[in-house]
């Protein structure tokens, strides 16, 4: 399952590798990280931030500048999109990157979700 890919890579360290002396590194990597699946398509993942009446406009802009390192003008444009259009795509990348950014937005108290870029 794709959603597990970010944690499954932790498992090799915990499981004893005793049976096979010859390890097919590529196959193992693929098995543990699911890379074949994620590289099979070039469609990136995106992170959306949704509007809410609580987070201050200054705070949202600050989060975009300090976490993503966006210049002030870009951060303000994205913040206004969230505020006026209800949502904005704030970052894109691999699924792992999208998950990490989503979690970071949640830790700042912003409501973010991630999805494949080609989903309506």
């Amino acid at each position: 399952m794709e959603a597990m890919s970010s944690t499954i890579e932790l498992l090799p360290a915990l499981s004893p590798v005793v049976e096979n002396t010859v390890v097919d590194v590529e196959a193992e990597t693929e098995r543990y990280t699911g890379t074949s699946e994620s590289t099979a398509t070039d469609v990136p993942w995106v992170v959306l931030v949704w509007n809410d009446p609580v987070n201050l406009m200054s705070y949202v802009s600050y989060v975009f500048q300090s976490y993503f390192g966006y210049p002030e003008a870009k951060a303000n444009t994205l913040m206004l999109q969230v505020h006026q259009q209800g949502k904005s795509v704030v970052s894109s990348g691999t699924r792992e990157e999208a998950e990490r950014d989503t979690q970071a937005m949640h830790s700042f108290g912003l409501w973010a979700t991630f999805r494949k870029a080609d989903q309506a």
């Binding site: 399952m1 959603a3 597990m4 970010s6 944690t7 959306l48 998950e99 989503t102 979690q103 949640h106 409501w111 973010a112 979700t113 991630f114 999805r115």
Partner: peptide, 18 residues
């Protein structure tokens, strides 16, 4: 909050991870 919109299964999976 939920990490995936309109997908309870994916959201729960994300919740368990993060």
């Amino acid at each position: 909050p939920d990490g995936v919109k309109d997908d309870d299964g994916e959201s729960l999976e994300f919740r368990r991870l993060t």
